[in-house]
């Protein structure tokens, strides 16, 4: 009779995410999960697999491939999809460039990051997805802190932050007309530390980039960028080797790494708990555009 009937906060966050997955699977036609091989999407997929046990995950995964991803991440993506016996749909930015739907940026700071929106929306339309799971978290960025768990997108894929659906209790309204869709964020209430603690506790495997390793880097605007085949070296860039790890993994052109010796999930948890700079502030050039950089991109239909 000493049962306290209490859950730890991570168990509660997992329960909330499981509830959201099941709700979408039960009520929405043609859902899909956005899977990039990044840690948040890996955790999201892990929770999805747990939500439907012992049945397989009842929806496909989609990757928006800029063509400028780290090789290790693509390899990890393919292994994971095979292990869980999932259907993988890849929507390639290169296809949109080739078809003239988007024009590639030029210059030394060129990135395909913003072009992804077109490929993402094309993938959703072509496959008629009614709901798309994303791994975005509210603690990442101030515009994301404002977004609902079930976030309505109109027929243009746009988010209207001034007119979001009220979202009360655990009653989620995913109704939409054909051509519209819902972005669903099961990890909305997780923080970076929660993600890492969960990765540690659940022994979830990640692409090796997330752990400390030796690599050649270039310092730019106070950020360390990996010297890969996608990076155009500028005059004055002096590549050097350092022990680093990535806190976020996106496009190789705009994702920075940090100096770190954290080689295990345990060590990363310790490091993240003591971190004094946000993961996106430390490592994402794409968020440094302006104060409203994320809000503007999200309105266009970005992740």
């Amino acid at each position: 009779m000493t049962a306290t009937y209490e859950l730890s906060h991570l168990d509660l966050l997992e329960a909330e995410a499981v509830h959201i997955f099941r709700e979408v699977a039960a009520t929405t036609e043609r859902p899909a999960l956005l899977f990039s091989g990044g840690k948040d999407s890996v955790v999201m997929l892990h929770v999805a697999a747990k939500a439907f046990w012992p049945a397989p995950v009842p929806f496909p995964v989609m990757h928006v491939d800029t063509g400028e991803n780290f090789d290790e991440v693509i390899a990890f993506r393919d292994e994971t999809v095979q292990r869980l016996d999932l259907q993988l749909i890849v929507s390639r930015v290169q296809d949109d460039i080739d078809a003239g739907r988007v024009v590639e940026e030029t210059g030394p700071h060129a990135s395909r990051n913003r072009l992804q929106t077109t490929s993402l929306l094309r993938g959703i339309t072509e496959n008629q997805f009614g709901a798309v799971f994303g791994g975005a978290r509210r603690d990442e960025e101030k515009a994301r802190a404002k977004e609902r768990v079930f976030s309505f997108r109109d027929e243009w894929g746009q988010w209207d932050p001034r007119n979001q659906r009220p979202e009360l209790w655990s009653l989620y309204n995913g109704r939409h007309r054909k051509g519209e869709h819902i972005r669903v964020f099961p990890l909305s209430n997780w923080t970076e530390l929660d993600i890492w603690t969960y990765i540690r506790d659940e022994r979830i495997s990640l692409p090796p980039l997330y752990y400390a390793h030796r690599r050649e880097v270039v310092e730019r605007d106070g950020m360390l960028l990996a010297n890969t085949r996608f990076l155009t070296l500028l005059d004055g860039d002096k590549p050097y080797e350092a022990t680093v790890r990535f806190r976020t993994v996106g496009d190789a052109t705009c994702t920075g790494c940090v100096e770190s010796t954290a080689a295990t999930a345990d060590a990363v948890v310790t490091e993240v708990a003591a971190a004094r700079v946000t993961e996106r502030g430390a490592t994402r050039a794409d968020d440094r555009i302006s104060e409203a950089g994320m809000e503007d991109r999200k309105k266009e239909g970005y992740f």
């Binding site: 603690d139 960025e141 101030k142 802190a145 932050p161 923080t191 409203a292």
Partner: peptide
Amino acid sequence: LTDGLRAEREQGITIDVAYRY
């Protein structure tokens, strides 16, 4: 820190709920 939308910062008011951790 908490007013995350452009309109909120411009008007100096909170319009929609923001979540902080």
